[in-house]
Structures are given as C-alpha cells and as structure tokens.
Simulated scan of single mutants.
Amino acid sequence: MTRQQAVQRVLLAAAAALLLIWTVFPFVWIILTSLKNPGDIISVPPKFMFTPTFDNYAALVLGEQRGQYASSRPDFPLFFLNSLIISIGAVLLSMIAGVPAAYALARFRFPLKEGLAFLFMGFRFVPFLAFVIPLYLLYQKVGLYNTHLGLILAYQLITLPFTVWMLRSFFLEIPQEVQEAATIDGCSWLGVLTRVILPLSLPGIAVTVILGFMFCWNAFNYPLMLAGRQTFPVTVGAIQFISYEQILWGQMAAATIVAALPQLALSLMVQKYIVRGLTMGAVR
C-alpha cells in the first residue's frame, strides 16, 4: 500500500465516522433526554453523566409524572393506538386499490396509459395545502373530521401513488413469458395476478408495505389539520407535551423513542425482504 492510498483510506474513514456521528447523534441525544429528570434536561452546560430515570416513560403509560413534577399528561397510549389503526388501515386500503391498478399499468394496453401512470405520481408532487383545505371543508360537512376513516382516506394521497408506482416497477421486472404461460394454462388475468405475479413479487410488496407504513406513521400535516384530540397520531400527539405553562422535554423525548419502535421492529423483522425488494431488477 502506497503512502497516498493510506492517506486516502484514513480520510475516507474519517469522513465516514463524521457522517455516522452526524446521523446518529440526534437519536442518541433524544435517548439521553428521555432518561433525564427535568433538572438534568435544562442544565447548562448539558449533562452527559447523570442518574438515569424511567419516569418519563412511566408518564406516557400512567398519564402522570411521579414526584414533585406530577401533573396531567396527554393520552399517549391513545395516540399510539390511533397511529396503528390509521397507518395499518391506510396501507391496507392502498394495497387493495394499488395492486390491481399497478398490474393494469404494467401489463394491459390502453390509451393514455403512461399519462395516467404519471398522474398517479403527480399527486406526490403537489403541496399538501392544495388538498388539505378542500378536505377540511369537505370533512366538516360529511362528518369525516376527527375520524379514523377520514385520516385513512386522506393518507391515500401519500400511500396510493407510491404503492402504484413501486408495484408497477416490480411487476414489470417479471418476464412476460411467465404470464403468457399461466394464460395458456387457463388462468384469467385475476388468476395470473394472484397465483403468479403476487408470489413472485413478495419482496417488492414487502418493501412497499413497509415504506408505505413508515410514510403514514410519520405523517404530520394531514392529521394536524384533519384530526382532533381523540384521533391524534403519535406525530401530533408528541407536541401535546408543549403547553403554555411548560415544555415537557423528557416526556416528548420518551414519546419520540416509543413512536420509533414499531418502524424499527418492522424493518428488522423483514430486513431481508427490504434488501431483495430494493435491489429487485438491478442485476439481470
């Protein structure tokens, strides 16, 4: 190894270490904040050595904090349950509607097919304000404001275009000959889809479901405008720890950590499918 190569490796390692610190440090700081008591959180300079406490996590479940800082708290378990209901419902609805749409755009021939496909993707480019104000007025009239169903339908603006485009690309990677062989054996288009295309596209479906779930779980703008206290998800529920009296940094940090756990657990459980799905079709 030459001196120049050694210097390049050292610089590359240093750059990678700096990038890792830049990426991981905010998450580490949130974890540390969630384990501090109020006095340690606001200390100047910041404390890196302190006696950890789980009172902030207990406050999320019990609805109140222990000791001298006891007071009422937002109903975080309800917010967490709302996020589960809304995110799972939105992803399930987008898959039910998106799978046939993606298959049609991938395999069928009809006029303006490419234009229709781009129209689906175009919904991802439009600012949310273009949708949220009409939705707010409509939901107030039809009774969908502050309901799980209303948020599930609104989230289709996030998940459905993404689902259609992702699955369309995965379906296109399956050789046409496979579909033709199934058709010769007597399968209808629905049989080809359910018996051939979907099983072969499981990695792509898995990564689409996971990413769609994450988009829904992390959504903030739509629930902020279209939900009430009974249907707030965790993203909006976390800011309920900010009041005119005080900012409960410890509880907010603990809520952030707890809210990140489902996404982390889901990603680890299906990690191999994510890798296969994201690289599907990269090498022929």
Rank of each mutant, 00 (worst) to 15 (best):
V178C: 06
A97F: 11
P52E: 09
D75M: 11
E114L: 13
L153F: 01
F162K: 09
Y155H: 14
P223V: 06
L198P: 01
Q176V: 15
Q68A: 15
A182D: 05
Y244E: 14
I86D: 02
Q246Y: 09
A260Q: 08
R107H: 10
W249H: 07
I96E: 08
A265V: 15
S87W: 00
F123K: 07
A102Y: 00
Y244A: 12
I274D: 07
A58G: 03
L32K: 09
R107A: 08
L138D: 05
F118G: 07
R276K: 14
E173A: 15
M269S: 13
M49G: 08
V99T: 14
T163Q: 03
F50K: 12
R9S: 14
C216Q: 10
S169L: 12
R229H: 11
Q156Y: 03
Y145Q: 13
D185E: 11
P223T: 10
G281C: 10
L172C: 06
L129N: 05
I205W: 00
P26F: 02
Q176P: 01
R124K: 09
F120G: 10
V178Y: 14
V270S: 09
L226D: 02
G212E: 02
W249R: 05
V142M: 06
F215C: 04
G237M: 08
G228N: 11
A90S: 15
L226Q: 02
K272N: 12
G143R: 06
Q271D: 10
